[in-house]
Design a protein around this nucleic acid. Sequence first.
RNA 1: GCGCCCAUAGCUCAACUGGAUAGAGCAACUGCCUUCUAAGCAGUAGGUCGGGGGUUCGAGUCCCUCUGGGCGUACCA
Length: 589
Amino acid sequence: MVVFKVQLKQKIFQILKEQAKKSGIDPEAIREEDLSIENPPKPELGDLAIPLFPFAKVFRMPPHALSSLVGESLQQGASLPEGVDRFNIVGPYLNIFLNRPMVTELLFQQAVKEGDRFGSSDLFRSKRIMVEFSSPNTNKPLHLGHLRNDALGESVARILRFSGATVRTVDLINDRGIHICKSMLAYKELGQGRTPEDEGLKSDHFVGKYYVLYNELAKRDPEAEDRARAMLVKWEQGDPEVRLLWEKMNQWAIEGIKRTYERTGIHFDQFNFESEVYLKGKEEVLKGLEKGIFYREADGSIWVNLEDIGLDRKVLLRSDGTSLYVTQDIGTAISRYKDWPFDTMIYVVASEQNYHFKVLFTILERLGYEWAKNLYHLSYGMVNLPEGKMKSREGTVVDADDLLDELTEMAKEEIRTKEREEEVGNIDETAEKIALGALHYYLLQPSPSKDIVFNPKESLSFTGNTGPYIQYTGARICSMLRKLNGVTQVKDRNGKATYLNTTEEWELVKLLSDFPVVVELSASSYNPSLLANYLYEVSKTFSRYYHEHPILYAEDPDVAASRVQLSRCVLQVLKNGMYLLNIPFLEVM
RNA sequence: GCGCCCAUAGCUCAACUGGAUAGAGCAACUGCCUUCUAAGCAGUAGGUCGGGGGUUCGAGUCCCUCUGGGCGUACCA
């Protein structure tokens, strides 16, 4: 369908230019970007709509007259452009009706031929894109906020790869700093050498427990903070005992976090540790100072002045010469580029850091790094609770593993009440996949930039506009295809586009043909939500159709075979799209 | 104070990036399992797109302003 769209657009553009010449108007006044092809609000109006408002002024004639004029030229010599059946003029709109069998046949061919690659493109061919996301701290396990971050990062990476890019996903693990020392201190003073195994806890939860214990400790012992700070100093000095404890606890934390990644289908090509890079920015700052990009205050601290572009002054090196958060980010970016030169670098980080990234990117540009203009902050909104922000101190943080366990349990319960244990087979595995489907769809469906409210009671539904609904649609198609073997008169027949004559089928064909366009749009805007909403639309449209028309048992076996073929296309689009959103595909549920 | 973001049905979110009568789900009510999985389908009800002004042939979408909310503005990360 894309082919037809492109051809049609060219044709209309050409017609407009010719008409302009005839009317003595400068053809240059006809701009291609004013020409758009849209979907009409109602299918009866047409398959494609071309609004001609923007050109009415240039031609100095009413829009409806212009659309008639263009329509006549389109029909010239009684032959319409390929794929176009007829057109209809509704006021200022030129509405196009496509040749249904032609579009349908094209979809059949593409979906079968390309299979798991259907929807892919070379939009980002030969582009190297680095995607940084997750970035956990090693003092506590992952929470719901990380899950949104991970879902976005993983999905964007998959979509970009599918669109031809060479993608490298990176996890920058924040494994040093005062907050790490806090859990270390609590463990040292209260842990009595126990291990996660001793307490039967997942290792990152074990570490997290001591972070909570620290906060309790600090409440009754005001000097705890001093001891934690002293520990950080010792850590920086390389004190062997502190380093040993640090390594032990970090290992626990990271091992546990990696298990959660595995569970949720998150993959990283590279892990960076802040402990290894946090000093790197320092020399860059000193270089910048020499070049006169930064300046030194009387107390020895080094600053950058960004007031000329509406930002503030920012400290880059403390008066004692130690580095800050921005400093390490400067260093990390530079060493990453050296290590793996990229065309684009995407930081998936919550919107609370918008300011930070503005500052970071500006500094890198001023330091003279050409690639700095290719850095992109993929900012996303916070995940809040109905009561407000999640706060670890108040214990309102929604733990990632607990949430998944809870969802899995709900899915199991659902399978049991529907009495589908036998058909499903491995209930544990299926329930877990349903849980992941629900979670990832829930997190990816809203626009990234928006804050979302997570209501534990209502948000975790499996019906309606949810991940499991999409999974269910796929599972039903699979189930139907399994039964196809029993229907001998249909089984060996090839589907043909000409047997599909219902409006519902045509709606499906148009929608499915749009899949590559939706993927491209999601890729170029780094926005998986477009894809998520699209998959829901596909599921919805198919469910309606499936309810309305028999497929396997259609009276005419040729019609049945063609409907099966269409269902296979739906399945392929769902499968490919679900992969891109990291929603597990299920043959049975 | 200043900067950035957000405001659409009771609730949670869409709206093809400025196009035709603003759509879904949840919750409520009503139907549909002797036919391919009822995690489904169909229907009823629910809206001055936060208020006001402007730009435009056309504004939920762009600009200004006010109101309400979030985030930031650390020699924290």
